[in-house]
Nucleic acid binder design. Structure first.
Lengths: 186, 186
DNA sequence: CACTTTTATTGAACTAATTCAAGAAATTAC
DNA sequence: GTAATTTCTTGAATTAGTTCAATAAAAGTG
């Protein structure tokens, strides 16, 4: 999927509008293990992941990493709360594999919103997209770990298979050893 | 808190605008145990709870009730995903105590948005408010049950004390017996 | 390719949490 | 105010999940 195809899912942009969007995008690369976002910083860019996987999470008081989400290619990498409210994020976003990105400055996006109501609509639809995703996540969290695991594997992009099991265990809120045993029982 | 005070937290409305909002509100009452929203229906009203508590959740395949959220007075009762996208909700919203509400028709709200940019702004801010709440919820879900319980009690309105423990246990994803034992250890 | 490092599995001992059953406490109904 | 119902607690037996340690497997490096 190209980024244009991605945008066209939301709004019926014409070629000039797509060109305008593309002109704002800056290509970036980032290697496995590097930080895209570090807690404490304010998100002033919206990233579109064209290749790779990120993990979003935090480090708790006892020093262990808690993974809250995986971000696959063809979706946005951002702490949207921090981006919207321009307050420091509590999250880290770290590359799980080598990644390629398009970055959009927040200011450019805000200007787009003023310029053309179709961009405004895109912004709203992206917000709603995230909103729905969060609502689903809250529901999924109520399921037992085994079911959550099966749902995760069946509904995610195939790249899920390239994520180390111990990160998936963290996402599920169980120990890597237990995930290994759950997978064996089958 | 009155509903006007509530709205003024978000946008600096003048008296005429507040009067306009108030004119759209319809008073409703609902008794303990009754449904405000039933799964399968499309949310076409936004409710503001002026008194009481609701639970939001669903019934799983094994027939047990899963509570995903409590809705206290001075906040909105709605499945916002269903309301936004006009698709059937999977959730039930049920009164935990006798409740009083103000209801706003979705169509009236959409008309307000067109009429005056301040209402539009209110809509955006309410969405963002929910968004932030969901993001916090996802983070809280990653904490162990005991901490989640303590956080729930310390950050909720005092009405939390009037909710039966077995519903709180469901919200926390643990059995009522175990919650009872956790509370005893202290 | 051999070496190092990272990731995954397995088992044993332990802790967290559930289920079931019984009784106590609190609410509701008449 | 007493009976009926709902909610809460406690304990014993069981299951789910953790921790730690050891080993195996896989992936990255020169």
């Amino acid at each position: 999927m190209t980024i244009n195809e991605f945008f066209l899912q939301f709004v019926d942009f014409n070629e000039a509008e797509l060109a305008h969007l593309n002109a704002l995008a800056k290509h970036e690369q980032i290697k496995k293990g590097e930080y895209l976002i570090k807690h404490g910083q304010v998100c002033d860019k919206l990233y579109f992941v064209t290749k790779g996987i990120f993990k979003l999470g935090y480090t708790n008081e006892t020093g262990e990493e808690v993974v809250l989400d995986f971000i696959f290619q063809n979706s946005f990498a951002v702490d949207y709360v921090s981006f919207l409210l321009q307050r420091p994020t509590e999250m880290d976003i770290i590359a799980v594999k080598d990644c390629q990105l398009l970055s959009f400055e927040r200011k450019s996006i805000l200007m787009l919103y003023e310029e053309n109501i179709k961009f405004q609509k895109m912004g709203r639809l992206i917000s709603e997209f995230y909103f729905i995703r969060f609502a689903e996540r809250i529901k999924e969290n109520s399921l037992p770990p085994k079911e959550r695991y099966e749902k995760l594997v069946s509904t995610s992009c195939e790249l899920i298979l390239e994520i180390p099991q111990y990160l998936i265990a963290s996402y599920l809120g169980i120990s890597p050893e237990w995930l290994s045993k759950l997978r064996a029982k089958k």
